[in-house]
Design a protein around this nucleic acid. Structure first.
Lengths: 203, 203
DNA sequence: ACTTTTGGACTGACTGGTCAGTTCAAAAGT
DNA sequence: ACTTTTGAACTGACCAGTCAGTCCAAAAGT
């Protein structure tokens, strides 16, 4: 993460890690600052020395995590681009990147989904910005695909982007929570089949 | 349940309605029983006369809501069956039914998604049962479709069911939260296009 | 070399408020 | 007669945020 490994950075990182799992399991409100501090192996005061409030800690956590996700999606898209792949291939690569992210940071994903559609919460505006960054990456690829004729002009870009993201998110969380025995490749090919429209039996 | 007393049922219904919107907005832990009672226009004592605890109220809410959803999905599937429609048509009808449900009970959907993948919570077992009921309806249709050759034998039924449910859920929540101007038909056709594999530009 | 000062990082007991759940006598509803 | 609801007061656990003080390594002073 942050290259300048000052003492402070190390502490913040420990706090992120402690907070993300606790909040994913219990939700924001029923996770106490004492718990976070204890899990991070740090005194409660340290939390407040490093963050203005419990909410601010959480918001920075969100920014941090979504930053990692969008970076990973963009990398997948760019890499396909460089290889001269099609846009559908880019989408496929992004699905895989998304699954990889969720596999590596399941707690973060859980927490993100749980908070995303809540209204009236302190961090709504942060979430909105951060969501748009992630969805925009998918929308861009869809738009390019429509422009070069590879994708149907009929598609509704924002809605399709949302549906694709949702498909990946929910399938992956379900996999993590209820179907642990599957491999990431199982999940990827199930989603790939849907993306390529090969669910109905023709061919 | 106790079909005897109508008065009690009315009170419980008012409490469900109050609780569902408040919890969807704020989450379970930061919603107080006093708030729920006030919004329902009922005394606090009444809450505890009708439910053992705040948690129990919430669990019954979950059961109640998912009951409505599965009933609506099953109705859509059965109706298509009776009309002699194909399985893909049944899936399409279920997507529409799902969207209709989310449109009618957005708060419930929000709350369900927020809680579904949490681990270590009091009501986890309730959620697990209730989730399985809903997903099973989709899995059944997929299985029948594979059996009669209408759907590809390649598909992984549990994963595809999860992905389809996720697609609908997330697209609909996004629609409700961020793209209110769209109609339910916009959303339905975007999802339908995906289901039929007509995203790639061929015809 | 040696003492002293500085300041960033951390500590943990404490405070003030909040909230689930209880109690109960009286009223309302059926 | 009986079930259900009311309303308001009360308890005790719990928790976000505070703050006076500790720790320590490196800089400054002698």
């Amino acid at each position: 993460m942050d290259s300048s490994s000052t003492r402070r950075q190390v502490t913040r990182q420990k706090l992120y890690e402690a907070a993300v799992t606790l909040i994913a399991e219990q939700g924001f409100s029923s996770t106490t600052v004492d718990e976070i501090a204890e899990r991070a192996g740090v005194a409660k005061g340290t939390v407040y020395y490093n963050f203005k409030s419990k909410t601010e800690l959480f918001e920075e956590l969100l920014r941090h995590g979504v930053g990692l996700l969008t970076a990973s999606l963009r990398a997948a898209a760019d890499e396909t681009e460089e290889r001269g792949g099609t846009k559908v291939e880019a989408l496929d690569a992004m699905i895989r990147a998304g699954l990889g992210f969720i596999d590596r940071y399941p707690a973060f994903t859980q927490l993100y989904v749980a908070e995303l559609w809540r209204t009236n919460r302190a961090w709504q505006s942060t979430l909105l910005v951060v969501r748009q960054e992630a969805v925009a990456v998918v929308e861009t690829v869809l738009r390019e695909g429509v422009d070069n004729g590879e994708l149907s002009k009929e598609i509704d870009i924002p809605l399709t982007a949302a549906a694709l993201v949702g498909m990946v998110l929910v399938a992956a969380l379900d996999w993590q929570a209820f179907q642990r025995e599957r491999t990431i490749d199982d999940v990827h090919s199930a989603l790939s089949l849907l993306l390529h429209g090969r669910v109905s039996g023709r061919r």
